[in-house]
Write a protein that binds this DNA or RNA. Sequence first.
DNA 1: CGTATAAGTCTACAAGTGTATACCTGAAGA
DNA 2: TCTTCAGGTATACACTTGTAGACTTATACG
Lengths: 197, 197
Amino acid sequence: MARTQSRPARQRNAAATRAAILQSARRAFAKAGYDGAGVREIAGGAGVTAMLVNRYFGSKERLFAEAVAESIATTSVLGPQITKSGASGRQIAAVLIGITKAEDTPLEGFQIMLRSASSARAARIARKLIEQHHQKLIAAALEGSLAAQRAGVMLALIAGFQLMRQVLELPALAKADPGALVKVLGPVFDRLLAATR
Amino acid sequence: MARTQSRPARQRNAAATRAAILQSARRAFAKAGYDGAGVREIAGGAGVTAMLVNRYFGSKERLFAEAVAESIATTSVLGPQITKSGASGRQIAAVLIGITKAEDTPLEGFQIMLRSASSARAARIARKLIEQHHQKLIAAALEGSLAAQRAGVMLALIAGFQLMRQVLELPALAKADPGALVKVLGPVFDRLLAATR
DNA sequence: CGTATAAGTCTACAAGTGTATACCTGAAGA
DNA sequence: TCTTCAGGTATACACTTGTAGACTTATACG
C-alpha cells in the first residue's frame, strides 16, 4: 500500500504497459540519444521498474531498435510535403521551421538519429532506415538529373537545420523570426527542387 | 624500475605532455563524442595516467572545452573560403566536398560537435564556440539583409552534409561523384551568398 | 652530493550503468 | 475460498565512469 495510493496505478495490462515503455523510450532517446538515455529513466517515464523493460524487450539495444523503427514510421510529416507534385520551397521551409520550433517534434526519428550518431550501432540502424524511408522516396519524387544527390542534400539540410536550431540552439536560427527563416530557406529548397542544369 | 624499461618513456616535459593529451583528446572526442570518450582512454592515447589529465585540465569538461576550441581554431579551411570577398558557391562546395571525403578531416571541430550533440554540457560549449568563431565571422562577411540567418543556414548545411556523408554515410552522398556533388551544392551556396531579395 | 620541486602514478571512492535472480502480488478460474 | 500464474518489484552484482588525496620519482639547481 505504499505505491498504490500515490498514482492512478495502471491496471495490470501487459500490452498497455509495453506501449507505455516504448513511448517513454522514444521520448528519452530523442532527448538524450542512445547512450544518454538510461533504462531506469525510461522505465520511470512509464511508471514502471527498470527490470520490466528488460523483461519485455530483452535488452536496451533491442528496445532502441524497436523505438527507432516506430519513430521513423511515424515521421511522415515532411515526406509527403516534399514528394507531393506541386510543392514549393517556401512551403517546405515553412513546415520545417514549424516543426522544429517546440521541444517535442514530429521529427522524432531524425532527432533520435542526431543524438545517437556517436554510437556506431545506432548510426548503422539509423542509416538503413533513413535511406529506405526518406532518401529513396524523395529522390523518386524529384525530376531531372542527380535526383539521388539532390535528395541527399535536402536531407542534409533538414538534419543540419534541426541540429543547429533544436539541438545546439544556435541563436541566429533558434531565436529568429519564422518569416525571416522562410525567406532564407525557401529559395534554397527551390534550388534543390529545380532540375540541375 | 618497473615502468621505465618498457617504454621510451618520454622525458618529463609538462608542455609536451599537455599537448599530447590535448591531441589525444581531440581525436577521441571526434571519434566517440563527449560521453563516448573516457578520460582513461584519452590518457592512454597520450601514454599517461588518467589523473594527469585532470591535473592539467581540471576536469573532463574543461578538457573538452579546450579541445573543441583548438579544433575550431584549426578548422580554418572553410572560414576563409567563405569570408573572402570573391567566393563563389561552386568554390565553397568543392572545398567542402574535398574535406569531407576521408575519415580524418580538417573539420574535426564539426565532427566533435556532431558526435557530442547528445550531451547537454557539450552542446552548450559547442554552441558558444561555433557562434563566436564561425557564425559571426560568416555573417559579417555576407552582404544584404538577414545575414545572421543566412550564415546559420550555411552552417546547418555544412554540418548536415558532413553528418550525412561522413557520420551516417548515406550512399547518395558518400559514394557520389565529387563533380556531381559540386553541381548540386554549388548553386545552393550561391543562393545563400546572394543577398536575400 | 643533496635536496627542493615539478612531473607523474596508485589506490580508492562514490555514483551510475545494464542486467540476472529471487521475490511479491493481485486478479481470475476451479 | 483456495490455487495459480502472469504482471510487476526488490535486491544485488559486476562493471565503468569522473575525480580526490596521498604517494613516488626524476630532474635541475645550490
